[in-house]
């Protein structure tokens, strides 16, 4: 049986060359300058106003996006839960299907929809609303794009957890005289917590680190930390500064996740 261990050899090589060494490479590049001597300047460059603003905006927009996704997905989960498990396959099918259209194209479709003379404004004009909505190339459009792209990743885990909640628990709570608000707060919400937590992770991290959505719907005016890193790496910036900023970004992601886990434990505490 111990010979079987050798079968994981190729995979371990992939982990080494594709995960471990690359992460060490970021660390190395972040800590040296162009000539290879040690410096902290790459990491300190986060304090530059442009970088700081981009990091702040990324955190803010990702936070708003996550909250909106959660507020949309949780009630949806409750409603779909009531419709029972027999539709489960169909619901998941409907949620995954859009992903088969390239996500960049779907985001670009929003650009077409949101244009000043675009589809949505034409419909609004036909309805007699002449002002329309002018959010293209603003952070609002970027948030909309983020919510659009990542909402399925919030809905799926929440729905998956909610559909498994034993209905007799809910009935028991009602029998014991709980109001429907109390049932939601004290029974459904805590039991859905694992789904909510993984939904938040799957929404917040990609939203915080995106550069394509902000580029497409921000019209090149909105710089998130992802856009800065992309500029540093692919458009004539410095790889070292890019690596330094990535390190800082990872630290912020880790802090967010740690806060989330703390919240998770509190959630579990109330279940008991």
């Amino acid at each position: 049986m111990s010979k079987n261990k050798l079968l994981s050899g190729p995979y371990l090589l992939f982990i080494l060359c594709g995960t471990v060494i690359p992460l060490l490479a970021i660390l190395y590049y972040a800590l040296v300058d162009k000539n290879g001597s040690f410096t902290l300047r790459n990491i300190a460059s986060v304090a530059e106003p442009v970088h700081l603003k981009a990091l702040g905006l990324s955190l803010l927009l990702a936070f708003i996006c996550t909250v909106i996704c959660l507020l949309l997905a949780f009630p949806l989960g409750l409603l779909l839960r009531k419709s029972g498990g027999k539709n489960k396959g169909f619901v998941i099918f409907m949620l995954i299907l859009p992903m088969w259209m390239n996500f960049l194209l779907r985001t670009i479709a929003w650009k077409v929809l949101l244009q000043k003379t675009g589809v949505i404004n034409s419909i609004l004009a036909a309805l007699g609303i002449s002002n329309g909505i002018n959010i293209i190339n603003t952070p609002y459009a970027v948030v909309l794009g983020m919510v659009y792209d990542f909402l399925p990743f919030m809905i799926l885990p929440i729905y998956n957890v909610m559909i498994k909640i034993d209905n007799s628990l809910v009935e028991a709570a009602y029998d014991l005289g709980a109001s429907s608000f109390k049932v939601m707060k004290d029974v459904l919400l805590p039991l859905s917590m694992p789904g909510i937590i993984s939904g938040i992770t799957m929404t917040f991290v990609p939203a915080m680190t995106t550069f394509a959505i902000s580029q497409i719907l921000g019209g090149g005016n909105i710089y998130l930390i992802g856009n800065i890193i992309e500029l540093e790496f692919l458009h004539g910036g410095s790889r070292n500064v890019g690596s330094g900023l990535s390190m800082v970004m990872m630290v912020f992601i880790l802090i967010s996740m740690a806060l989330l886990n703390k919240f998770d434990k509190n959630g579990e505490g109330t279940v008991i």
């Binding site: 995960t19 970021i26 680190t209």
Partner: peptide, 24 residues
Amino acid sequence: VVLQLTNIPMVNAEIVTAISLLLT
């Protein structure tokens, strides 16, 4: 340990995975 290493690309931000490979 192996499973934790397996999880890294799943939880890591895509752009970080991308630049880490580029640098390598």
